[in-house]
């Protein structure tokens, strides 16, 4: 079913809703409705270490007449690069939710603690990635071990593995995309375009900034670089995404 997501019609696969506490700046329903307006035939809901948003996302998608792609963004406590995990069947889904439950039990209230061991250990909870679509998210400055991490994902996890590429108008996007493309080529995994959406329309940037301030316990004037540079993290039409990634078909 997710295979459709990579066909010419674009689907946003990296979506943070307001079910990620103080990060996402839109309801899953709003995101689903906007995705339908833009002509996407599905929208993903990938909150951080939680599946809490998928039910509302599902309802919203149903109303909007599109599909929802259920998933989670896995953030690790030990510096392992984040992953989007999109289960394709019920077993894969239940293994993902078990992983999250265990992670939550380890940590304080409303937190979830995961490490690389959870991901890679053959007899661990995750029990390898069979049935999952995994999309790695490159860190800000991909170190020398990032390509090896990708190779390890590809080789050890029995799942479809991709590398997410974003074009967020940060100035160095051309450079960064070229670098990611090179890494992906080296690690022999395909590149997939996402926009790391945090809200459905650009007008929500202000709300996202306010959430950042609450999260970071700072005032808007002192928040500095923790705020968003621009208002580009919204859902974008397929043509726009195709233009941004035209060098990487």
């Amino acid at each position: 079913m997710t295979v459709d997501a990579f066909s010419p019609g674009y689907v946003e696969l990296q979506v943070t809703t307001n079910f990620t506490f103080l990060q996402g700046a839109a309801h899953p329903e709003e995101l689903a409705a906007q995705a339908a307006v833009l002509g996407h035939d599905a929208v993903a809901v990938t909150d951080h270490n939680t599946l809490a948003g998928v039910v509302r996302g599902h309802l919203g998608a149903k109303t909007a007449g599109i599909r929802v792609i259920v998933g989670t963004r896995l953030n690790f406590a030990d510096g392992t690069p984040s992953l989007l995990c999109l289960p394709t069947d019920l077993t894969a889904y239940s293994r993902l939710s078990r992983l999250l439950t265990v992670g939550k039990r380890r940590a304080e209230k409303a937190q979830c603690r995961l490490s690389a061991t959870d991901l890679f250990s053959p007899d661990g909870i995750f029990a390898r990635g069979a049935g999952q679509v995994l999309i790695a998210i490159a860190p800000e400055n991909p170190g020398a071990d990032f390509p090896s991490f990708l190779s390890q994902m590809r080789d050890e996890l029995e799942s479809e593995t991709y590398l997410a590429a974003t074009h967020l108008y940060r100035g160095d996007d051309t450079r960064r995309l070229a670098q990611l493309a090179d890494i992906a080529k080296t690690a022999r995994i395909p590149l997939v375009a996402t926009n790391d959406a945090h809200y459905h329309v650009p007008e929500r940037r202000a709300l996202a900034d306010v959430l950042t301030c609450i999260r970071e316990h700072c005032t808007i004037d002192s928040a500095g670089h923790r705020l968003t540079l621009n208002a580009e993290r919204h859902l974008k039409p397929a043509a726009e995404m195709a233009r941004l990634f035209r060098d990487y078909p």
């Binding site: 108008y169 940060r170 100035g171 160095d172 051309t174 450079r175 940037r205 202000a206 900034d209 808007i220 004037d221 968003t228 540079l229 621009n230 208002a231 580009e232």
Partner: peptide
Amino acid sequence: AEGPERIAPEWW
């Protein structure tokens, strides 16, 4: 040339 670096106004 390199860019764009999109810098939005400080809305607040």
